[in-house]
């Protein structure tokens, strides 16, 4: 198990992207400290000091870690007060995080196999770091990213560094029109699918994987209080009963879930 750290971080960059998304880049306040290793699929819990209405920490996936520059990237969508306060952080503001939390995506053995990383909306976030980790292990992953419209597309150039990028938009303004589950890429033989996004999308992806006997892992986003397995608030019903999404997950093999798909 990777040690969990409570870290004070400093804002290196906070870029407003399209559609209420922003990319927050952080580094340890103590610049002599290098970011400890984290696995793909893990997340952080951020204390949002600047929002008086935000009492609990906010869980956010690791979007990318640039170990060369000692930077942690978070891709965040403005939803409510907590994420809005984060979007307003300025360069050199500080914030406290717990890092890294949760389990990680399971990486397959054979490097020739076709791996498809399906992200929808802000759920594309963990796919970038997963893509990088896979790329460094010698895989060429296929990213299948779904957005509502071309103006929502984020981090395209980053994804391209680590694999082939396939896009769907609901309005057809870029890539293939429709949902990710309609994309032609899925007609090819696939060894494993990794997915993160809105629950209806993940369920559709899981259903497709199940029907086609493709191994599939999903990243769940149940609401959390602690983020490290002590409050039992974030449970998902699985074949083994209630388990914590924050510590036994957030990554689950669909075989373990009790979704009606």
């Amino acid at each position: 198990m990777i040690k969990k750290n409570v870290l004070d971080m400093i804002v290196i960059d906070n870029q407003e992207l399209s559609n209420n998304y922003f990319l927050l880049k952080l580094a340890p306040v103590d610049s002599s400290q290098s970011l400890p290793y984290a696995e793909a699929g893990q997340f952080v819990e951020i204390r949002v000091d600047k929002s008086p209405t935000t009492f609990l920490r906010r869980p956010i996936s690791i979007n990318f870690i640039d170990f060369d520059n000692n930077e942690l990237w978070l891709l965040i969508q403005k939803i409510g007060d907590g994420t809005k306060a984060l979007s307003q952080l300025k360069i050199s503001d500080t914030l406290n995080i717990i890092y890294p939390l949760g389990n990680s995506f399971g990486l397959p053995e054979a490097q020739k196999s076709k791996l498809v990383l399906v992200g929808g909306g802000v759920g594309v976030a963990p796919m970038l770091y997963l893509g990088k980790v896979l790329f460094e292990k010698g895989y060429t992953p296929d990213f299948l990213l779904g957005f509502r419209s071309s103006s929502d597309i984020v981090l395209m150039d980053e994804f391209k560094k680590y694999g082939n990028v396939h896009i769907t938009t609901e309005d057809g303004s870029f890539g293939e029109k429709g949902y990710v589950t309609n994309h032609s890429l899925l007609n090819e033989p696939i060894q494993k699918i990794f997915t993160c996004g809105p629950k209806p999308m993940m369920m559709a992806v899981a259903k497709y994987a199940k029907e086609n006997s493709i191994e599939c892992e999903v990243s769940l986003e149940n609401t959390m209080a602690c983020g490290f397995g002590v409050c039992l608030c974030c449970v998902e019903k699985t074949t083994e009963g209630h388990v914590c999404v924050c510590s036994d997950g957030p990554i689950f093999n669909i075989e373990k879930l009790t979704w009606q798909i």
């Binding site: 009492f55 149940n222 609401t223 209080a225 409050c231 039992l232 608030c233 974030c234 019903k237």
Partner: peptide, 14 residues
Amino acid sequence: GNPYPRMAETPSGM
């Protein structure tokens, strides 16, 4: 225990 959801954040509490 009880089914999910089991937690709601409230003003200065949960």
